[in-house]
Design a protein around this nucleic acid. Structure first.
Lengths: 125, 125
DNA sequence: AATAGTGTAATAGTTATCTAGTACACTGCA
DNA sequence: TGCAGTGTACTAGATAACTATTACACTATT
């Protein structure tokens, strides 16, 4: 997996697992891959995986069962909030950064619309 | 200044200066604050400021005149690209991250629109 | 010439992150 | 019971980023 060298890897792994859960590639109650397997898949050290997972466990997004594995929580409230929070973070991020560039909300929408259209055309290969 | 502890400070300072230039708080050809002054303003070490500035100089965004100071480039092409690139990075970032969450372009626009409206209302205090 | 203000360079010490390696603890199954 | 598969803990070393400090080089002004 390719990582942004400006952000800690363990942090990017957290984001990755958030995504996997949100798109239900990992479903509520499902066992996630073993730490040693994740380390291989993501080409990262086990300790780094563990660093990410232990934080996700603290956040009640994952549940650890010693000797068995790590599992996605079944708490629908936590999962609902996870998705909501993650999406909102992205949107507010764009809003804040473009506002700092003195770009009006109307222009933001236009820029996003234009970008979407450019991506559509790019796919017509 | 408040920094995100997940991203190197020197890198965030680069972004800060990009912003200052884009919104023309720092104008083409204008001298920017002295490194020691920036260090105080941003509550950061001079070396960290220097790390950021030297990269901006390498990128031809700033021009260094030894003994005199650092100045914003007057190369309008560079400045135009800087703005374009910075804005596009933000937009493509949102697009990519929300796409990874399986969110359709239509929904992206809706989310952004809703967020903008919620911010408008929040300001009606 | 001296000085104040500027950028630049270099060293040393601290902290966070990441890696490598080893060891230990629990679970389920043969 | 033994073993394979799981999570967990700990130590040690490497690297990047940041800080603190000192020193040096150039420019403009007095």
């Amino acid at each position: 997996m390719k990582f942004d060298d400006k952000v800690p890897i363990y942090y990017q792994i957290k984001q990755y697992i958030y995504r996997e859960i949100i798109i239900e590639h990992l479903k509520p109650g499902q066992q996630i891959p073993a730490v040693r397997q994740l380390a291989v898949t993501l080409t990262v050290n086990v300790n780094t995986i563990q660093r990410a997972l232990s934080e996700l466990i603290d956040e009640d997004v994952l549940v650890s069962k010693r000797g068995k594995g790590n599992f996605v929580t079944e708490d629908t409230e936590v999962l609902k909030n996870l998705k909501k929070r993650t999406v909102e973070e992205q949107v507010s991020n764009l809003y804040d950064n473009l506002t700092a560039l003195r770009i009006s909300p109307d222009k933001m929408l236009t820029y996003l619309e234009n970008y979407i259209n450019s991506r559509k055309e790019a796919n017509h290969d």
